[in-house]
Amino acid sequence: MSKNNGHSTSPRLKTGLAEMLKGGVIMDVTTAQQAEIAQKAGAVAVMALERVPAQIRAEGGVARMASPKIIREIMATADIPVMAKCRIGHFAEAQILQELGVDYIDESEVLTPADEAHHVDKHAFTVPFVCGARNLGEALRRIAEGAAMIRTKGEAGTGDVVHAVKHIRQIVQEMKILTVLGEEELYAKAKEHQAPYELVRIVARDGKLPVPNFSAGGIATPADASLVMQLGAEAVFVGSGIFMKNSTEFADPVEAEKRARAIVKAATHFNDPKVLLEVSEDLVGAMKGLAISGLDEAHMLQTRGW
């Protein structure tokens, strides 16, 4: 226990904030106005971006950390936590974001990776990090590096939930298997998952990750949010699905707010079909989206990071 009056890198404080976000919806926003809509609609946090994943995907080019000016404007508007993304391995972007005072950094595959071998050493930071994962090994490697929250990757910017489902199912199934194995079998599993044995043992004992496990990448409707939460996600990130009509045009703000409210309610009442029907009925359309089955692997964001 420290009587600090300064900054602390305690993992408990880092996962503590993630605990507060459970059962909630974290929304991607690109302007202060969108942040205000998100907050009014009941978002638990916003992700401040220059472009949402659907735009990044459509426009191509190198995707970097958002301009601090945009993030600062969003921080000035939002009373809820503000997150921002840095490129995989780009610890200098992370240092800038920490200096700026964001509440969480997403070391994200949505941006163009800055390092082909190393992720950011997240223990070195006061600000907590969230990282994407497609399977248990990837999740545990990120946790070993200091991630205080995991989100399944899905396929960002598509509005297609199929890989969000694939990744949460994969992680949950791999965790279940660990819980029924004998002590002596865990060493080989650690090797197979390419993850630290100590973390594998913790998952085998608890049946869950040692940090909160959220879902992201393609969630566009209240039903999508309910689906991934019924599969074991503890909260959801909704990126392009709220404020985008398609990959280049923004949705009408009134419609966006309606959709945001509906997804917030769906995250809370994820196992109550009556409420889900009620909130779904009010909505007109959803993002057009991009079917992942039509994407070749080179265009997938999820394969970034390892």
Binding site: N4, N5, H7, S8, L17, P81, V102, V127
Partner: peptide, 14 residues
């Protein structure tokens, strides 16, 4: 609300 500042100002105290 948020009277101590942002997340970097979160702390464990006695």
């Amino acid at each position: 609300r948020n009277a101590y500042g942002r997340q970097v100002d979160s702390s464990i105290r006695e």
